[in-house]
Write a protein that binds this DNA or RNA. Structure first.
Length: 754
DNA sequence: GCAGTCGTCATTTTT
DNA sequence: TGACGACTGC
């Protein structure tokens, strides 16, 4: 680019960029695909690109659309752009796919054939609705699992297929599914409800079919920037194409090696197709990594090179090699957790804080054992995942009342609110209402209004409920949002209801209700929501941004999460646990033939680590209550061995044999360390190589085996980890479930074999 | 309407 | 093994 006008702002904009980043940021206004490796400054390029367009290319922020997948990414992007340049960027559209789609639908609700106050269904709401539709069609839950049916509906929508466009073909099951889809969609339309996939589908159809709107947005959005492009699904991609038309300039950033959501409809192939659909597209690779040590990067490169059909990328760093990756073979999951905790302690002795430590695992079930160890050792931790604020029962209950005040035909909210708290409107009454509503093709609310004597005794109760909602709507309409919330919570009787509930959960429920009032008070209606009632804006916000994963963010504690939720994050020290065939790669994935995606998941995990990476696996693990023998993950073998060091804090321990019948999972076979491994006896195909003593490696002289489960009168149940000494002085180290790890004199401990 | 009981199920989850 | 949902009996 020409720098004839050395605007200091512009100079500063590119000064700190590396050549590849600079190329991307200063590229002429043409299509670009930026292949941004992990830790290569992806967000930086994206934000600087936008700043460049505005400050140098004189593009109006008004002409820019920047799309992300998460709210977090969107708000981070906006924040960083604003701090980069001193130009108001309020007119720029930055948001998630769903957020942007929602915004369009609010603006063009008429053209989209939606009621003005349409409500958004979150995943849970959608599931409930599907259940009701299944019931109304007399399809039993067990034959038609709601989860699967919901998945089917979302899949259809993601492929852009409407029920009416589906030909009557296929077998019985297919026809039934199509029937459910159709009925579900009808229900949504009648109730003014829009699920997540529908937001995208409607917005796509709106932009595709309405010439005026299409022209408007094509004319407006000259620059479309997309983050995490490898995660786009069919619909999102189609929408981007429609919006871009033949004049919009696309700037896509992504990493095919980090595509881990194909099971949710994401298609990496879009990255490969981009060159066909956007002529003149050039690819820029960001391969210099600013996050991890050379060792970690080489390990990641080595692993991912096993995948086929990659766009190709090799991460490198100017920094040093750093520490080798440590691999620990644990006896079982308890030993593995103990290893993690002990290593953590050794790091915490130095200048490392809790937040610098993360434990990553393939599936949520693995967290429990780790938690127990952390609690025992008084290490504060935080688990990502679980319910988010706006997904909590009590919060959804309260919101249902408010949704009813603004949208009476919202059956989902009606069903939720009508008998919570209990007001004598039971299943029978509801069933009658549903039947009537079905017959008349209208909402529960309307049916309830006219139901009258047909309902017998509950008529009065129902009437009271209707009056409650009407009265609530009337009395809060001019109030500020927080007052609305407060009034709804009080008058609905929800607070009383949850006050009566016992247990420690009850208290947190009440706190959450208060927190909801706070959230309403602190809610600032986004500028673009002008013209939308504050309540509708808030309700949409609640559905689209389900809130924090768990309280206590920013506190100094160890982070636990699945590999999927770790994407996009980084930690100085990472423990990647459960590296066993069957668990990771997961058996299901292997069966479904998605091994490459599992490998990418492993790649994501490895590249989260900045300074130090630990891998561990358990030789025996309890899975669904059954002890299973595991073999080290094939991915461990696929990391070039020169970067791995096996750690054994105790010398002379060998692999135990297990006499109890166990079914083996995974088919990866044994683990044969490459020649570069530091040798460690007894850890190969021969399961019972002799150790240093005369006894076999696996037997603790005295009748126990390493890894055996024992009970101690005082400490309870535990697992034998190791032993030393012999004869009368022989000691065993036992990891007790509750009491921690202890050395015991075998002669005195009176252990009982289990 | 609720508590207790039984049976079933067990990757991953940005919106 | 353990969590959750559906069912049953008062």
């Amino acid at each position: 680019m020409q720098f004839e006008a050395p605007n200091p702002e512009v100079v500063a904009l590119v000064a700190a960029l590396n050549p590849a980043q600079k190329e991307a940021v200063t590229a002429p206004p043409e299509h670009r695909l930026v292949l941004a490796g992990a830790g290569s400054g992806k967000t930086r390029v994206l934000t600087h690109r936008i700043a460049w367009l505005i400050a140098v290319e004189n593009v109006s922020p008004h002409s820019i659309l920047a799309v992300t997948f998460t709210n977090k990414a969107a708000s981070e992007m906006r924040g960083r752009i604003e701090s980069l340049i001193n130009v108001p960027v309020r007119t720029m559209w930055v948001g998630t796919f769903h957020g942007i789609a929602h915004r369009m639908l609010r603006l063009h609700w008429k053209e989209a054939r939606l009621p003005q106050n349409f409500q958004i269904l979150d995943a849970d709401d959608q599931q409930r609705l599907v259940k009701r539709v299944l019931r109304s069609l007399d399809l039993p839950d067990d034959k038609w699992p709601p989860k699967m049916v919901t998945g089917y509906i979302n899949g259809q929508k993601e492929e852009g297929r409407r029920p009416e466009a589906m030909q009557d073909q296929g077998d019985y099951a297919q026809r039934q599914l199509a029937r459910v889809y159709s009925a579900y969609q009808q229900q949504c339309e009648a109730n003014g409800l829009v699920d997540f996939a529908e937001l995208l589908l409607r917005a796509h159809e709106l932009c595709r079919d309405n010439a005026q709107i299409q022209a408007h947005y094509r004319n407006r959005f000259r620059h479309i920037l997309v983050d995490e492009f490898q995660d786009t699904n069919t619909l999102q991609y189609a929408w981007l194409r429609v919006l871009a038309g033949d004049r919009g300039v696309l700037f896509a950033v992504g990493d095919d090696d980090q595509s881990i959501y194909s099971w949710r409809g994401a298609k990496v192939e879009h990255m490969m197709r981009l060159g066909h659909d956007f002529t003149g597209l050039e690819v820029i690779r960001l391969e210099q990594n600013y996050r991890s040590t050379g060792t970690i990067l080489k390990a990641a490169n080595g692993l991912i090179s096993r995948n086929n059909g990659r766009l190709g990328k090799n991460l490198w760093t100017e920094d040093g090699e750093g520490e080798p990756i440590q691999l620990y073979a644990a006896f079982n999951e308890y030993d593995e957790a103990e290893f993690v905790v002990n290593k953590m302690k050794s790091h915490l002795d130095g200048r490392c804080r809790y937040v610098d430590l993360a434990i990553l695992y393939r599936s949520n079930a693995q967290s429990r054992v780790l938690e127990e160890s952390l609690i025992r050792n008084r290490i504060p931790y935080r688990i990502y995942g679980g319910l988010r604020f706006f997904e909590r029962m009590e919060v959804k209950d309260a919101l249902a009342y408010l949704r009813l005040t603004t949208s009476r035909d919202d059956d989902n909210s009606f069903e939720r609110a009508v008998n919570t708290p209990a007001r004598g409107i039971g299943a029978t009454t509801l069933e009658r209402l549903r039947a009537l509503a079905r017959e008349q093709g209208t909402s529960l609310w309307k049916v309830a209004q006219g139901a009258g004597a047909a309902l017998g005794r509950s008529h009065g109760n129902l009437k009271q409920f209707l009056d409650l909602i009407d009265g609530l709507a009337r009395d809060i309409q001019d109030e500020p949002l927080s007052k609305m919330m407060e009034t709804a919570i009080e008058r609905s009787g929800l607070r009383e209801h949850y006050k009566k509930e016992k247990g420690e959960q009850a208290e947190s429920r009440l706190e959450n209700l208060d927190e909801l009032i706070n959230a309403a008070r602190g809610f600032e209606r986004p500028a673009e929501d002008e013209g939308i009632a504050p309540l509708d804006s808030f309700l949409a916000h609640a559905a689209l941004e389900s809130g924090e994963r768990q309280a206590g963010e920013g506190e100094d504690c160890v982070q636990l999460m699945t590999l999927h939720s770790a994407k996009g994050l980084e930690f100085p020290i990472v423990f990647l646990v459960g590296m066993e065939n069957g668990l990771f790669p997961h058996q299901r994935a292997v069966e479904e033939g998605s091994l490459e995606e599992e490998r990418r998941l492993c790649y994501v995990g490895i590249t989260r680590a900045r300074k130090q990476l630990y891998l561990s696996y358990a030789e025996v693990r309890r899975v669904h209550g059954v002890e299973q023998i595991g073999s080290p993950s094939m991915f461990v073998r696929e990391i070039p061995p020169e970067y791995i060091v096996e750690t054994r804090p105790r010398a002379g321990i060998l692999r135990p044999t297990f006499s109890q019948p166990s079914r083996s999972y995974g088919s990866g076979g044994g683990y044969s360390p490459g020649s570069n491994y530091p040798s460690r006896g007894g850890y190969d195909r021969a399961p019972s190589r002799t150790a240093t003593s005369a006894a076999t490696a696996n037997d603790v002289p005295g009748g126990y085996k390493l890894g055996a489960r024992v009970r101690h009168a005082k400490f309870g149940e535990g697992t034998i980890l190791t032993f030393d000494g012999d004869g009368d002085r022989m000691r065993v180290e036992v990891r007790f479930r509750e009491a921690g790890t202890k050395w015991l004199m075998l002669a005195q401990a009176k252990l009982e074999a289990l």
